Structure formats: C-alpha cells, structure tokens
Computed example of a mutant assay.
Amino acid sequence: MSKPKVLITRKWPASVETKLKQLYDVSLNEDDLPLTSEELKSALQNYDAVCPSVCDSLPAEVLNASNKRCKILGNFGVGYNHIDIAAAKENGLVVTNTPGVLTQSTADIAMTLLLMSARRGAEGDRLVRAGKWHGWCPTHMLSSDVTGATLGLIGFGRIAIATARKAHHGFGMKIVFFNPSAPDPSVIEELQATRCDSVEDVMRRADYISLHCPGGPDTRHLIDDKMIRLMKPNAHLINTARGDVVDSKALIDALRDKRIAGAGLDVYEGEPNIDPGFLTLENATLLPHLGSATLSTRNAMGEKVLANLAAFFEGREPEDRVA
C-alpha cells in the first residue's frame, strides 16, 4: 500500500522532517519560501494532506480549488485564522492545530515584551548601538515599574493564564481579565484575579494590557481607537495573539501622540508587511513573531501535527481537530 502524500509548506525542525520522511511520501520546502496561492491550490489537488503555517493564506478562493485530493490540513500552529474554516468544512476538509505545547514559550514572550516596553529596553539597546549613550544620569530614560502594577488580560485561556502566573507569582502583579466564559475558580483564587464585565473595563483599569484572544472576523480590530482611548496615559499594550486584533493605524497614532506609554508587539496585521509607521516609534517594541520560537516548542508542534495526521490516516478522530 502506498504511503499518503504530504506537503509541508515551510521548513520544520530537522527531527520532525526525518520522521515525516519515514512515515509519508513527503515533499519538504527546502528553500523555506512561502507558497503562492496558485501553489497552494496545486497542493490541494496533488496531496492527501497539506500542512500549512500562519504565513499561508487559505481563503475560500484557494480552498475551493477543483479536483481536490487533499482531505486534511494539519496546521503547524495553534492559531488558524489564516484558514477559512467555513470554506474548509464546505469542502470536506479536516483541519487540526497544535494547542497546549506552545503555552509557556508564548507566555515568556508576552512577559519579555511587557518588560521591554515598561523599561524601554529596545530603545536603550538602539541608543547604545548607535554610540549615543554618554553615561549614567539620574533622569535618563526613566520608565515604568512592573512589580506591583496591574496586568489586564483580554482572553483567559492557556497562554493568558500562564502569563498571569509569571506576572503574579514572579512580579507581584495584580491580575484583572475579561473572558466570555468563566474560568476555573481555583485559578482565579490562585492568582487573586478579578474578572471584569467587559473589555472596556480591563482597558480602563490596567497598567499593562496583554491580548490573548483568537483572531478572525469576530475580533478584528477589537482594540480600535475607541478602546485605546480608554487606556491610562502610562499604560502599555502587549500583543502576542493575532495582529488583526489591533487596529494598527489607531495604535500608531496613540503611540506617536504619547496618549499611551508604549506597546510591545510580536504579531502584526498583514505580517510580514508591517505598517511602516511602527518603525518610526521609539515607544514601540517590535519582535518578529517569536512566540513559539524555541527548539523544544517547535519540535513539540511538529509532533502534534504528526499525531493528528496519524490519527486521520488510521481512521481515528484527530485529537486537535478544529474543523
């Protein structure tokens, strides 16, 4: 019996690619260049499984390709708003993701951004590298305290809770959050957290606001000009969720006008095509989507995809099916 044909759209960790070669008739992306829409359509027509990542846009136009051979999209990542889920269902495509394994690494990046934004870390690094630092001064680059400050979380899933634990137990931060559904009461007790009635309430109360909600039409531009104007003048916005949750123009305007103190971003609308307005701002800390970028995490994500593919091809329900 021939092995299923599988396409990997980007380069994966070597250990996972080795296993893929053993298990499947696999095509790897040795050049690690993003596929075009036409290439993705062709992949759907010629492979039993396609394994995309966040950089692969799979709208209805692509998923509606004629004469499809593909039956499963094994997404390399927990977020899947780059895939039109409704169109996938209409086309009989199973979609899986990789939850759980990137929780701690992404929470680490949220805290990294929070600390860098609060203490003007990126700005200070640029100053030293440019040879413009002339020595210690009592009033130089004064910044904001983190210890004891209030952290507000929009969304309260795995990554948000992990971030809250690091902030509360490590820095004594007070935790407030908004989530549509009620979380485990023991977690609220552990973190001495306060559940707010609305996103607006979090925006008003917090010194640091960290976004942990899913992307997609329901949350696109959730954080818009109106929401940002609710923030304290000394507040910072942290985004490790999805870029389209934030209205980039509104955030750039607020940062430029110093209506808020700073922002730490790991994700962007239309990435990697970042709005050039961000590049001119000293009070914006910008990372290149590093949330899950540790070797152990990326290996674990690959193993999740392998497990989902194995279950599908063996006729079992994939554990991480989202469509």
Rank of each mutant, 00 (worst) to 15 (best):
V187W: 03
T106C: 11
C196F: 08
N75M: 03
K132R: 12
G262I: 01
E39H: 03
I175R: 02
G243T: 04
K11Y: 07
W12G: 07
E200L: 05
A254D: 05
M301G: 01
R259M: 12
G277N: 11
E317F: 05
S117Q: 07
R256G: 04
T194C: 02
W12C: 08
L230S: 02
R298L: 06
H221L: 02
F178M: 08
G170I: 10
T194S: 14
D224Y: 01
K5T: 15
T219L: 09
A65H: 00
R69L: 14
H236K: 03
I260Q: 01
L265I: 07
A87M: 04
L151R: 00
N97F: 10
R316K: 15
I109Q: 08
A250V: 11
V101P: 09
A118H: 02
W133A: 02
S42T: 14
V199N: 03
G124H: 02
S27N: 08
L142P: 04
M111F: 09
V50L: 05
H140G: 07
L255G: 06
G270K: 09
R129S: 08
T194P: 02
G100H: 13
S15T: 15
H289M: 01
M227Y: 01
P288T: 01
M141I: 04
V6H: 05
P52I: 08
S57N: 14
E61M: 04
S2A: 13
Q22V: 08
V16L: 03
S53F: 11
I223S: 04
Y268H: 11
D108M: 06
L286V: 05
T96L: 04
N97C: 14
I161E: 12
L63P: 10
L73P: 10
I159A: 07
C196T: 10
S117T: 14
W136H: 02
K89H: 07
M231A: 11
K71G: 14
L102C: 10
A107R: 05
Q192K: 15
V101Q: 06
L20N: 06
S181E: 09
G264I: 00
V187G: 05
K304H: 03
T103S: 09
S27A: 09
E319T: 14
P272V: 13
S186D: 15
V245Y: 04
T112M: 15
T147G: 05
L287E: 02
S53M: 14
L73T: 13
G170D: 00
E38H: 12
L35F: 14
P4N: 12
A149I: 02
S144F: 06
P272K: 09
A65M: 03
V202F: 08
N64T: 10
E17K: 03
E39R: 04
L290P: 02
N97V: 07
A122M: 12
D253P: 00
F278H: 11
D31Y: 00
S37M: 06
S292A: 15
A206P: 09
N97L: 10
L222T: 13
N239K: 02
G315Y: 08
A193S: 12
R316S: 11
G77H: 09
D201F: 00
I83P: 13
K304D: 06
A118V: 09
L127W: 05
I161Q: 15
A110L: 03
P288S: 05
K304E: 14
D84C: 12
T96D: 06
A254M: 04
G74W: 07
E269K: 03
W12I: 13
S198L: 07
